[in-house]
Design a protein around this nucleic acid. Sequence first.
DNA 1: GGTGTAATATTGACTACGCAAAGGAATTTA
DNA 2: TAAATTCCTTTGCGTAGTCAATATTACACC
Lengths: 161, 161
Amino acid sequence: MHTQTSAAPETPSAVRAWTRLLRAHAATTRVLSAELQSDHGLSLNDFEALYVLSGAEGGRMKRVELARRLLLTPSGITRLLEGLEQAGLVRRTTCPTDLRVAYAELTPEGREQFEAASCAHVGSIRDLMEEHFSEDELDELGDMLGRLPGVAEGDDTCAAL
Amino acid sequence: MHTQTSAAPETPSAVRAWTRLLRAHAATTRVLSAELQSDHGLSLNDFEALYVLSGAEGGRMKRVELARRLLLTPSGITRLLEGLEQAGLVRRTTCPTDLRVAYAELTPEGREQFEAASCAHVGSIRDLMEEHFSEDELDELGDMLGRLPGVAEGDDTCAAL
DNA sequence: GGTGTAATATTGACTACGCAAAGGAATTTA
DNA sequence: TAAATTCCTTTGCGTAGTCAATATTACACC
């Protein structure tokens, strides 16, 4: 089956890469999340949601589509948007032709808040990443991670539908 | 083939890489975690803890050192080990020379359980990763992620201390 | 039209884990 | 030796997200 090159319990490259992915996530989210939360009162996924919505046509998107973009479950999206709606950053709108679907729509305050947070947050991300990687490496890292199932999906699709 | 297009046409490479790191984590942990949980009743961090302990001298390690290895906070470690102790996989031992420190020590059942889970889990990890990356790419991915602060620390050090 | 199936969204119960606060033990400083 | 500080750990509380179950709507087929 696996022609493991060593008889000794040498960690396979796949496991090493996976473990480091876990650790990289833990290490980076902790600092970025804390900063975003204390400076702008947003969680990372709050920000990602606003980010995705801000780029969508009309600042609105089907909730189910947003879920796919953020890789959240339906209930995760419900709860995420619950918070954003209560904060007045997103409003819920309905689809006249299909009563099942609901849209999440950026409010003017939401867009404003996003733009305010975006500047600092993107700066922090760049500081963190560009300190350790060149531009080419960042592209390459992004390309590689995008190969994992589900990661790159909908990256280009501005599916407002 | 860089698919460097996103909702915003001007997304910096750093942000794209970061976003994909988030998504890669979400996508991969969801499937691996569910499998590990249902097949062996372990969370990903449960497994990582057993993994680290199983490679440590005497199967034991200072809790604080384990926390560093898993990138968990002190309270996170307390709660993680709580579960493992209740499951009988890890036992708590004390340090005779310093009453502040406690060790987490793998029990025989813990080692057994780890080895049972390890085979399947490592297989799943390899299946997932090796399907999308070559061996060289996995090494490179691991190298790159290891450059982020805190990620590679203590990777080789079997610090039983 | 009636029935079965798929899609969307919500809810309840639960897990995981972070932060802040606090306690006990060790070490340093005075 | 006393006091201050630092280290390790736990605890209370809050947040974020999952899954399973449920309700509603849409649609396909007979």
